[in-house]
């Protein structure tokens, strides 16, 4: 099980899951390798592979060991990881409208206080960056985003604040996220998007994948309301751009 830097560590999580670990830190290069293997396995999944869960640094493979033998899975993973270092899928960029104004950007003044920036500068800095979806986790559709400018890297709260509404745009601990379901949070709520990244009743319940890029486009509260109405009527308000890298 000794691993060279180029070879992922393979860690058993019981007899029905295998963790393919490419590193132990949050790093776009590690994430690229995770997502490249995810793409490769997704393009031609071995029978018995039940779920692929990409995270910052690893790909968890849930499998049925009575259908897919561990040794066969390991061999497949090793071969693909050695031959696949770049993502084969196109890079997808989403532009999500985001209202930072009241009542949505509830915690902007607190972020301004903690960073020493003006509230307007907080908005301009957040909206000026391009984010990568590293992974989903924690709650349905909760998307962890990397790419937050260093100046906005405030630690998360020691104890959670009261629940935020659905589709809150949040920052904390050096990361950004879109929090799709209302819940108490240790993150700072700086805005909201009318785009619903998660809608269980929709044909495509999720449209943003791990590895996709996201930019936020500031809109005022009236526009937010209008876009929310369009989204509720089934007209997606997120805009999609695609390019081959």
């Amino acid at each position: 099980m000794s691993a060279t830097p180029d070879e992922p560590r393979l860690l058993d999580a019981g007899e029905a899951a295998l963790v393919v670990e490419f590193g132990s830190t949050v790093d776009p290069a590690i994430s690229d390798r995770v997502l490249a293997l995810d793409d490769a396995l997704g393009a031609d999944p071995p029978e018995g592979l039940r779920e692929r869960v990409p995270t910052y640094r690893s790909l968890m493979l849930h499998y049925d060991p009575l259908v897919l033998d561990r040794a066969a899975l390991v061999e497949r993973v090793r071969a693909l990881a050695a031959g696949t270092t770049e993502r084969t899928a196109n890079t997808t960029l989403w532009t999500l409208p985001c209202c930072y104004a009241a009542p949505h950007g509830e915690d902007i003044s607190q972020v301004a206080e903690r960073t020493g920036l003006s509230p307007d500068a907080v908005v301009a800095t957040h909206a000026g960056a391009t984010y990568r979806v590293y992974m989903y986790g924690f709650a349905p559709g909760f998307a962890y985003l990397g790419g937050l400018p260093e100046v906005l890297a405030v630690p998360r709260r020691a104890s959670p604040r009261p629940p935020h509404p659905a589709n809150a745009v949040v920052i904390g601990g050096g990361l950004a996220a879109v929090a799709t379901v209302p819940m108490p949070t240790g993150w700072y709520v700086i805005g909201a998007t009318p785009a619903r990244l998660y809608a269980p009743e929709r044909d495509r319940s999720f449209f943003v994948g791990a590895g996709d890029l996201i930019r936020f486009e500031p809109v005022d509260a009236a526009t937010f309301d209008a876009l929310s109405a369009r989204e509720a009527a089934g007209e997606p308000v997120a805009r999609r751009w695609e390019s081959r890298t």
């Binding site: 999580a13 132990s24 830190t25 995270t55 690893s58 989903y136 986790g137 962890y144």
Partner: peptide, 29 residues
């Protein structure tokens, strides 16, 4: 640790040292 996937039955050990076995309604990571 930097978050990674969680299988049903995973036994995590948080800061207080007392193991927690994650069951059917566990989080995914």
């Amino acid at each position: 640790i930097v978050s990674d996937g969680v299988a049903m039955g995973a036994i995590q050990v948080p800061g207080n040292g007392l193991p927690i076995v994650l069951m059917a309604d566990r989080q995914s990571t």
